[in-house]
Amino acid sequence: MSTLKPTVSETDHIQGGNSASIEIVEFGDYQCPYCGNAYPIVKEIEETFGDQIKFVFRNFPLQEAHQFAFRAALSAESAGLQGKFWEMHDALYENQYRLADDLFEELAETIGLDLEKFKTDSASDAVKEKVENDFESGIRSGVNGTPSFYVNGTKFDGGATDLYQMLKESTE
């Protein structure tokens, strides 16, 4: 059975209740169509369960399959340095159908980032390292495709819809 390595820490992007009893970690790729389909379901999970869950996103860009996945991950992390990781995360999934080189700055502008800082950060080693560390943690945790979900540290066998179903059953 695959477990999450390393465990969730302050280097992660976390949404939801800090004292939540259910911790969900998604390894995702912004260009992956399956992640794109999972995105609204994850949103619904967050709305339904609120502070009962803590949601964490880690980057797992499948660069060989998805030309813009790594750039998208860098963009989300760069937005994170300006306190807007989740805004960029959402914007990337909501505009997934038009991912291209010129989209990242457009989204940065839309969500109100300092563009110069965004450009500098997107090209920085620190941001690249954060994405690579996330990817590495996915490899160590047994991720073999995206999206992969971990619930309370253990790999969940199924997609977002299955996850939603399981949560509904376990919280009834």
Rank of each mutant, 00 (worst) to 15 (best):
V42W: 02
E94F: 09
A126N: 11
A73Y: 00
E47M: 09
Q67C: 04
G16E: 06
F149T: 06
S170I: 13
T11D: 07
G83C: 06
H13Y: 15
D12M: 07
Q15C: 02
L4D: 13
Y150L: 02
V127Q: 04
G153M: 09
S141M: 08
E105R: 01
E44Y: 08
E26F: 04
F70H: 07
K130A: 11
K119C: 01
H89R: 00
E94Q: 14
F135H: 10
A76C: 04
P33N: 07
K119F: 01
A91R: 00
N37Y: 13
A108G: 15
S2V: 10
N18D: 15
Q67V: 14
F135W: 13
Y93Q: 02
E47C: 01
N152G: 09
G142F: 07
Q96W: 07
G50S: 11
D114S: 12
Q96M: 11
K43W: 01
Y164Q: 14
G153N: 10
G36Q: 12
G138E: 09
Y30T: 00
A38V: 06
S19M: 10
D114C: 05
D134T: 06
K117M: 09
S170A: 13
M1L: 11
K54D: 03
P6E: 08
D12H: 08
L92N: 03
N18W: 08
P40W: 11
D29N: 10
S78N: 04
E47T: 12
P147D: 09
L81K: 15
Y93I: 01
V151T: 03
V143S: 08
I45K: 04
K130W: 01
E169T: 12
D134R: 08
D101Y: 03
E129S: 15
E46M: 15
G28E: 02
L81P: 02
M88K: 06
E23N: 12
M1H: 09
G112W: 05
Q67G: 09
E77D: 12
T48W: 05
P61D: 01
P61K: 01
R140W: 03
L74Q: 03
V143A: 10
V56E: 07
Q63T: 14
A126L: 11
A69T: 06
F60Y: 15
T11V: 05
N95W: 03
S148M: 09
T11C: 00
V25E: 10
P61V: 00
G142D: 06
S124Y: 09
S137N: 13
T7I: 12
E172K: 15
A91H: 00
S141N: 06
H13R: 15
M88E: 05
N133A: 14
E106K: 11
E129H: 11
D121V: 13
L92V: 04
A126K: 13
F55R: 08
